[in-house]
């Protein structure tokens, strides 16, 4: 276990934990908006942690650049698509969940 692994492994494992938490939210939450909220947050953080873990293990700056670029793209796409879905759902009268 090289020193970089000591940093990488916890990052990767916590990243996957976030993903699993996100999918738990996807299954359990009552309506679209909460699921959207859960997913865009947890998946992006999860991906961020995993990318951080991989960056630590990466062996060239080009790979680091590419990994961060991928993460940026997913963030951009995730945020705007979530916004589009929310607006569309609201306009079509999907009711918010109230206690």
């Amino acid at each position: 276990m090289t020193p970089s692994d000591y940093i990488a492994v916890p990052l990767l494992v916590s990243g996957v934990m976030f993903f699993l938490a996100g999918s738990a939210g996807l299954l359990r939450f009552p309506d679209v908006y909460t699921r959207l909220h859960a997913l865009t947050k947890s998946d992006n953080v999860g991906l961020g942690l995993i990318v951080a873990g991989l960056v630590v293990e990466a062996d060239s700056w080009f790979v680091v650049g590419k990994l961060l670029f991928i993460w940026l793209l997913v963030l951009l796409a995730g945020a705007s698509v979530a916004n589009l879905i929310t607006k569309g759902a609201m306009q079509r009268g999907t009711r918010m969940w109230t206690r």
């Binding site: 997913l39 991989l54 293990e57």
Partner: peptide
Amino acid sequence: PTAADRMLAVQVFGTTAVTITLLFAQ
């Protein structure tokens, strides 16, 4: 239930696939 959920699912597929492929790359 709603179409929005299905779009949500497609979004999840994309993000998860990216992550799986990155882990495979390593």
